[in-house]
Nucleic acid binder design. Structure first.
Lengths: 152, 152
DNA sequence: GTATAATCAGGAATATTTCCTATCTGCTAA
DNA sequence: TTAGCAGATAGGAAATATTCCTGATTATAC
């Protein structure tokens, strides 16, 4: 299914409108492939919708999270970053620099959700968050805390 | 091992000092049992160290994250929340209200980390994040976005 | 004990995120 | 196809969380 169809379907089933702003924010998230923050998304979408406001970007991003199309990441303290939920993937989070790196794993997909979790609500999906020190940080001897910000 | 011993060990091996502020911030995190933000921790610690500054609380929380003793949560947009990494537990995150609920699962503990993740750096731990709609939100028909804030 | 590098308190500064509201628009039903 | 309306947007203002800066203090190794 095309990604826009997915968007259309989710918006529809939630009784929300398919506006150009919503379409472009979602497309920008997919196109970026990474974990952009609201400001990056705003900048990207402006190329197509020059007058879109930052507030709309924020509202839209959170709305898409609610619809399950995006996922906010573990915070790194600098800003909120988002991740497009496309095929299943998992995250390696570096506790030193805060970078979140995607990886895939067929073993981890299809992980079955234990009863203890299902009891808490209706489950939509699950993913694994692995924490540790990334190779980049392990290499450089000293990493200032200020670098928590960076992310690819 | 006592939690304070763990703190002492981690601080030591990182060449950091064991200050009363660090001890109390960590103890407060453990005592809270939940997912407090910096302001709550500050308030709690003040009972024992009335003059501790909010800035110190922030610095200490991030330092403890770096040491692997705390974990920042998936953001909900309002503030950064932290989780003490004690016995292994996992998270159910409600995409509607943003609440993060702990659950335990012996099946999910001891999940083995795939090569694809180990390649990215030195792994410390892993946990599963299940997403869906919590029972609370499923009950109330309408949930305003503003409620993303709340958390127990 | 003492030297010394690290940490602290407090307030100021920054930046991100959200709020407000008049205006506009996508969607549905006729 | 079009009218009507609930819902969405823009733009700037406001709130709030987070970090930075400095002189003073403190924990630890020796």
């Amino acid at each position: 299914m095309g990604e826009l169809e997915k968007l259309r379907r989710e918006l529809r089933s939630a009784g929300l409108r398919m506006t150009p702003q919503r379409v472009e924010v979602y497309r920008e998230m997919i196109r970026s492939g990474g974990h952009p923050g609201a400001a990056e998304v705003h900048e990207g979408v402006r190329r197509r919708l020059p007058s879109i406001s930052l507030d709309t970007v924020y509202r839209t991003l959170w709305k898409l999270v609610e619809l399950g199309l995006l996922r906010p990441l573990v915070t790194t303290g600098d800003r909120i970053r988002f991740d497009a939920v496309l095929e299943t993937h998992h995250h390696f989070v570096c506790t030193r620099c805060g970078r979140t790196i995607d990886f895939t794993s067929s073993e981890l997909d299809g992980l079955d959700i234990p009863e203890a979790a299902r009891r808490l609500g209706s489950v939509r999906d699950a993913h694994v968050e692995v924490r540790g020190i990334c190779n980049g940080c392990a290499g450089e001897r000293k990493t200032e805390k200020g670098e928590r910000d960076e992310e690819g």
